[in-house]
Design a protein around this nucleic acid. Structure first.
Lengths: 227, 227
DNA sequence: CAATATTGATAGTATCGCTACTATATTTGT
DNA sequence: ACAAATATAGTAGCGATACTATCAATATTG
């Protein structure tokens, strides 16, 4: 999917950054560079000092945009979910059937992201890999409650809520829509990671996107009224 | 569940440690102390120096047992899965019905662990909390392929394989048994974490164990032959 | 009781996460 | 036009972390 509207930009909760990285050239280089570097080195080996060197700036300058590397990771995942929500709304608009909307949502949320450069300075395919491999580290911390209170995970919760509402359209009696959707989104990420690194934990059928197919089947069967 | 056999101890892949912590008093204090400390501070804030102080030993001595804090985390999760497999085998023995065995396995793998002190120096309830909040950090690293090659995740893969085989007994045509089980195990952990910290991502029905119930329903519906 | 393994104390290296301070560029008011 | 105000970038450094090396003290064992 290419960029839908050229004059749209993804808004990120402004409590996540000290200075908006979209507001300057250096800011954009920080985002582009950090995506490249986290994808390449992993979050643990990634540091602001290395990033500064790479993008021809300094550690202290990066700290003017983000107060910690944790916040930068939160920013990246938050941007990603903002972008996903934007794509989700487009893909579901004008589709009458709730079931069709659900299937489209599952496809969007579980499929692999291709290189398509829809936002100039952000490589969405790399960012997808980062979200798969690193985003759990953004909330699996002792600071999760504070971060949550500041609204850092709001966009993600919104997506889960949106898709849950579609499920309730299909079966208003279904008791676990949020569990199903959050299980599916996080599960799909894990399955892609397992396919690459721990294949014994998955079932890869070549020539098909098993991950998306598996979760579509799972969801449809789960929400169909008890027989 | 109390300890099943007093003369049984859980074996952990010996490539994970430098010196077996079960082999000495200091080793056991390292395990007990690290479980307390990681549960309390989280893996990021946990250091060998702090642990040494807490258990009345030194940083250098701890390094004689584990070459890094990453390896210690791998040890703890590996012990946990070894313990789970042992309980799993007991709980499923002498049960003829495959469906009943599957339901028991799901209960075991998704339920909350109570304080029961079945192995003297290991608090399984705390360890369960650590596995929920920290175990993803044991494999979401750039070193995952090396670690996997050394067999660090073997026990976990074995559990997934065991339960997958039960699914295939029920429906030999089901295409995604491993995906279903690994999604379920990791998913249940996430749901418990979400219930505590990001409740908008789950559906808590008070008075019931929604997590276990949700995954039981999900699995049974998923593997039932296509109608 | 001698040989050996285990532990502890101390100090050291390299890097990390982060900050105080300084220098330079840009904008603004008169 | 030009100095003052402001925004932005870079240098240097601090305390902590992850881990290692050395050596003496103390158990353990054969």
């Amino acid at each position: 999917m290419n960029r839908l509207l050229s004059n749209v930009s993804i808004q990120v909760n402004d409590a996540i950054y000290l200075k908006n990285p979209e507001s300057s050239d250096l800011g954009k280089r920080i985002i582009t560079g950090s995506i490249d570097m986290i994808d390449e080195l992993g979050f643990e080996h990634f540091t602001f000092r290395k990033l500064g060197k790479k993008i021809g700036s300094s550690e202290a300058s990066i700290y003017r945009y983000f107060e910690s590397k944790h916040k930068l990771l939160v920013y990246l995942t938050s941007w990603y979910w903002g972008w996903m929500e934007y794509r989700l709304v487009f893909r579901l608009s004008n589709i009458d059937s709730a079931k069709e909307r659900l299937l489209r949502a599952i496809t969007l949320l579980t499929e692999q992201i291709e290189e398509d450069q829809s936002f100039s300075h952000i490589n969405e395919a790399k960012l997808n890999r980062i979200v798969i491999a690193e985003s759990a580290k953004a909330y699996l911390t002792k600071e999760v409650d504070q971060d949550n209170q500041e609204g850092f995970f709001g966009v993600f919760k919104q997506i889960v809520e949106r898709v849950s509402l579609i499920i309730l359209e299909i079966n208003p009696a279904y008791k676990y829509p949020h569990m199903l959707i959050s299980t599916m989104i996080e599960g799909a990420h894990h399955q892609r990671y397992f396919a690459a690194h721990l294949p014994k934990l998955t079932d890869i059928v070549k020539g098909e996107d098993s991950v998306t197919r598996f979760y579509k089947e799972l969801a449809i069967k789960a929400i169909e009224p008890q027989s």
